[in-house]
Amino acid sequence: MSCTAFCFDLDGTLTTTEILPCIAAELGVAGEIATLTRLTMGGLIPFEDSMRLRTLILGQVPLARVHEVIASVPMAGELFDFVRCNVDRCFVVTGNLDLWIAPLVEQLGCQVFSSRAILMDGMVRLESILVKDEAVHQLRASGRFDRIVAVGDGANDVAMLHAADLGIAYGGVHAPAGATIQAANLVIHDAGTLCKLLKAL
């Protein structure tokens, strides 16, 4: 029997808004971080550089407050339900930090591949930044799945979409980056349409 794994980007795919600008609002720099996030998703700034910079800035917000903010970030309802119903074969693949997104991960209930950080003397210290195709390679090497589907919207999803058997550029929240479309097999603009297709695979 065939078994398909589904890899989802988090920010702007499973969530209906980018998460980091929400955290930045705590420091009064939501607009600035949103701009940085947009440039990063568009591929104009390397993801690793941008993530280091954003971690440095947003690390000033107390972790408990970050968790409160993140717990209230809206999720794409139909996609959230799809993940909840298929937790054994759905995976969140995100450049965001494990330390920050823990409350969302708990809600979703599936395995997560993410960037890693630790709290040291009250400071967020970045340990590693996820290269997203690594998640696909690990899932393939596990031997559990004979097909891997990946869904994402940003420039940092390109490697993941390339590595997957079926790459989907998702434009439900905002238009997918040009490079993301070029790396994809499919382009889908609506959560309900995406779910209908995923269920048929």
């Binding site: 479309i181 499919l186 382009v187 889908i188 609506d190 309900g192 349409t193």
Partner: peptide, 16 residues
């Protein structure tokens, strides 16, 4: 076509 569908037909799947 992608732009046209993103404006007018968001519920179709575009296959490249």
């Amino acid at each position: 076509i992608i732009e046209h569908c993103s404006q007018h037909h968001r519920d179709v799947v575009i296959v490249r």
